[in-house]
């Protein structure tokens, strides 16, 4: 995601991520599924950490951010939010 050396994500971490993208709200499920289909294969450790941080949000907050109704309070997550919105 940045200029730093990319660290590979373990198969187990990717699998855990894939399950944790199952959410309480359909809208989030759909956006996250599309993101994984497109980007899971190239996700690095930093990207994974950012996505996991975003997934800590509640479903309503997450959808507010993904739909662009609200910006994420944590600016570090900006690049990941942009990728999700474009997915």
């Amino acid at each position: 995601m940045s200029g730093r050396a990319r660290t590979r994500v373990s198969e187990a971490d990717l699998r855990r991520l894939r399950w944790r993208c199952r959410r309480g709200m359909l809208e989030n499920d759909l956006v996250l599924e599309r993101f994984l289909d497109r980007h899971a294969a190239t996700l690095d450790a930093e990207g994974l950490a950012l996505l996991n941080a975003l997934l800590e949000l509640g479903d309503n907050e997450l959808w507010d951010v993904l739909s662009g109704r609200r910006e994420c309070a944590d600016a570090r997550l900006g690049p990941m939010v942009r990728m999700l919105r474009e997915a």
């Binding site: 199952r22 959410r23 309480g24 709200m25 509640g58 479903d59």
Partner: peptide, 12 residues
């Protein structure tokens, strides 16, 4: 629970 409790569909 298959998912963390506060991520249940009741949230919708």
């Amino acid at each position: 629970s298959k998912v963390f409790p506060t991520r249940s569909h009741t949230v919708a």
